[in-house]
Write a protein that binds this DNA or RNA. Structure first.
Lengths: 145, 145
DNA sequence: ATGTATATTTCATTGTATTGAAGTAGTCTG
DNA sequence: CAGACTACTTCAATACAATGAAATATACAT
């Protein structure tokens, strides 16, 4: 199996895993992606989320409503500017998420014990660079729209 | 940066790249996924696609309509069973797709030249096993639905 | 041949997310 | 303090894809 095909398989597996996680959380793909951004980029104002998702303001209100109703997110009015609403990942709803990823983490850890120092370094380097390439290509595809 | 975080970054990058490709092709995420299955699994009957996507028969008709209208796919009646409609990826629409992935392929190839034999073997093994783990976890998440 | 089963399509309906306009509340400038 | 601006929400209209039932065409069994 050559590199391109392997890459294709990996990306398919990643996408399907994401979808499975979303289904398990009771979210659609778009909302799951939004939750990822919120979880990752810490509390962020609704407007920033709109910009990130290239979505209108009212769509964000509806989206945050859904996530809040499902218990994955909280609204907190920004103390600095009370017009703003900060969207925070609600970690009390996160046991769910923890259980989902615990197995994955365990299996990946087990996998990594197979490799020696130098191999681990190569793998790490490969992953870091692959991320960079994907980001660059994503940017290239998105720029001329 | 630890393994879990790196894995999270990689999967995010993969998902965003997929979305960017879909946007560029003028497809939504679901249709892009379907096109992937069709491209990969060769010509396949509409019913098989329905099973794969866990979608109703009529939804498939609409989906194939969209892909056909966009020029990515053709309908061919199965000569063996003329009730069946085989859905074929239309490679004449594929220059698009080739151009999109050419850059990615080139950059990834360039990246791989950095590693020696043993490192390449480790990386390949890592990718293969990661795919296996992701598939297993996806199955686990999907089973008890 | 006839009848039953299968594969896909068509159509009307439903569900769900997005848009755009108007409204509300808060901030900033002069 | 007044006026202009910004951030979000609400609401009605719209777009889109999925569903389920009925229709069409083909295959298979007796």
């Amino acid at each position: 199996m050559d590199g391109a095909e392997l890459g294709w398989e990996l990306s398919t597996a990643v996408v399907l895993f994401h979808e499975a996680v979303a289904r398990r959380l009771g979210l659609n793909a778009a909302d799951h992606k939004a939750l990822g951004i919120i979880t990752r980029n810490g509390p962020l104002p609704a407007g920033a989320l709109a910009a990130e998702l290239r979505l209108g303001a009212s769509a964000i209100t509806a989206l945050v409503d859904r996530l809040e109703r499902a218990g994955y997110v909280r609204r907190v009015t920004d103390p600095g500017d009370r017009r703003r609403v900060l969207v925070c990942a609600d970690t009390s709803g996160a046991p769910d998420l923890g259980a989902i990823f615990a197995d994955l983490g365990r299996e990946m850890s087990a996998l990594m014990t197979k490799y020696d120092e130098r191999e681990l370094a190569a793998i790490g380097d490969y992953v870091v660079n692959t991320i960079a390439v994907l980001k660059a290509q994503t940017a290239r595809l998105s720029e001329s729209e």
